[in-house]
Design a binder for these strands. Structure first.
Lengths: 327, 327
DNA sequence: CTGAAAGCGCTAACAT
DNA sequence: ATGTTAGCGCTTTCAG
């Protein structure tokens, strides 16, 4: 395989000149430049990123941590991250942690040993202590996630306000018996969205019935279905349900369909995230839209700025209530 | 930042010994080893993968090319690839090409300039010529894809046979008026699945009506919905539809639901891929299941063997017809 | 404008 | 068992 030496020899110049042609062509005379380019072409030479990276001690690689790529919530964010990263000359490495600390460690080590230059964490299950420690020495930002002490920069929406808007929407439609399908309260966003729910209910002086607050361990379709099954079994049924993610809502909708319960006539349903599939259900799902692409793009910019040594600040973006057929 | 030199100095040994402690601890006496480990710990030293990679000229990185990560079809395959890769000490870089040749080139260059050691291509839109050329010099395998001249190793199912099984299933249920929602015939799998459809229809002496063969440009939900819209407008309606992907089928189902057409009573529907969603629709979708995890895992193994210089052979895996509510 | 040479951090052959 | 040293492929001063 051709290397810079061979190109230099063939072109009758020094390796330094070849390097200049590659990185800083303007400082080389047209004549030598064409000579070098000719040699590069003839030898089919491709500069080794390995050598370059070692020399410049930069890998141009960013890590994106997420629990599972199969969660459609992340796809649009990733697009935002990727586009921005590529624009800035970085590539991204999608890292599925499966909420497994061992996996996490593999990826943390990649930034420790310089294989990657920074991390965008979207994993709510990640060990915050580890992450915070790592953030002291390496560029790290969080996307659609943050910890309460907030030492790590993040981009997110106002989860409490968004949940408040979702529930207020149901209340304004006349609903008084509203259930909440939440995820595990170990997640900050789950606690925040609960608070939004609570705030709306209290504001309109509606009772919160504990048996209608369901905390699911996972955020898969089956969990939403399971939750709805639980709600339908109860003596008094709610007339509206707010699920803190579309995936949960779609699972819940499945159970409603199975039981031939009309949506929204019998039970209204609001999701969260506006994933693509939420528009393919029958009926289509009312949901909260997060500016996912933008979140991704901003978090990538934040990280790259951090890598460059610039100061960065956390950002809170606007959400939007998207009213569709399910309410 | 601590490097191997500093560790060596602190431990009072040579850099070679430090390297040995890292890579080949058995050949070092316990006494010096503990000394070195102590120094490593005190300096908080992490070996630089950059230096190591340059020296060994291996990056331990594999590229996975796919048109879009938002397509749920790929997620399980990726899991299979990733698990196997990590087991073998490799990491994977998920590369979204968006069917954009420029993007492709970025990733092709990563393997040319040694940033990655090989490619698993799952992109049907990739330029086969470019890929074949690259495959002459670099380790490349294809997953759930292959080109007809077949110079590149692949793992796939028998698309024609699978489609044949799907359609035969409909015929055995008594259907005679069967439509096909296909993707663009520029894709080999589209042509193969059409052949399977054709074979079943001919075997049972059923007519193929050209106006019931729809070739969609993309494979998104909307395309499936669009296709079904087209079918419903026709004078004579089919009683069954085979869609070559679940995403298309789910879009089609959406349109059926909108028009209150009963599935499977009025129109039966078969998909392809068994994506997670296909079990969340109402009714649940009959579909062809590919052994996706296994395909991923095998393709990763194939690639790694290729990198190691071993001979590898293409593999065709079994599919399975999963009968659910939509037929 | 170009060349010589140092060196990024590491591994491995060779020497002791 | 450990040390010495060359060198992976490149970029970047410093001279000229």
């Amino acid at each position: 395989m051709a290397n810079i030496q061979k190109v230099a020899k063939k072109a009758g110049v020094s390796v330094a000149t070849v390097s200049r042609v590659l990185n800083n062509p303007d400082v080389v005379t047209l004549k030598t430049r064409t000579k070098v380019e000719q040699a590069i072409h003839e030898l089919n030479y491709e500069p080794s990123a390995l050598g370059r990276n070692l020399r410049t001690s930069r890998s141009r690689l960013l890590l994106v941590l997420l629990p599972s790529i199969s969660n459609p919530f992340y796809t649009e964010i990733i697009n935002g991250i990727e586009d921005t990263a590529i624009e800035e000359g970085y590539n991204i490495l999608l890292c599925e942690t499966d909420s497994n600390p061992e996996r996490e460690n593999i990826y943390f080590n990649m930034v420790k040993n310089r294989l990657a230059e920074g991390i965008i964490s979207m994993d709510p299950t990640v060990n915050k202590k580890t992450l915070t420690d790592l953030a002291k020495d390496y560029p790290i930002v969080q996307c659609s996630e943050y910890d309460e002490d907030g030492t790590i920069c993040y981009v997110s929406i106002d989860n409490e306000l968004a949940a408040y808007h979702a529930v207020r929407h149901l209340i304004k439609l006349g609903h008084e018996k509203i259930a909440l399908i939440n995820s595990d309260e170990k997640f900050l966003y789950a606690r925040e969205r609960y608070r939004g729910f609570q705030k709306a209910m209290e504001e309109f002086e509606l009772p919160i019935r504990p048996e209608w607050i369901l905390n699911m361990e996972n955020v898969k379709f089956e969990d939403g279905q399971q939750a709805m099954k639980g709600l339908l079994k109860q003596e008094v049924r709610p007339t509206a349900v707010f699920a803190v993610s579309d995936v949960l809502a779609i699972g819940a909708l499945k159970e409603l369909n199975i039981n031939q319960i009309r949506v929204p006539e019998d039970i209204a349903l609001v999701g969260f995230d506006k994933i693509v599939f939420s528009n393919m259900t029958h009926p289509t799902l009312t949901t909260i839209s997060q500016p996912m692409y933008k979140m991704g793009s901003i978090s990538a910019n934040m990280l790259i700025n951090k890598i460059k040594g610039k100061a960065v600040e956390s950002v809170i973006l606007e959400h939007e209530l998207v009213i569709r057929e399910s309410t």
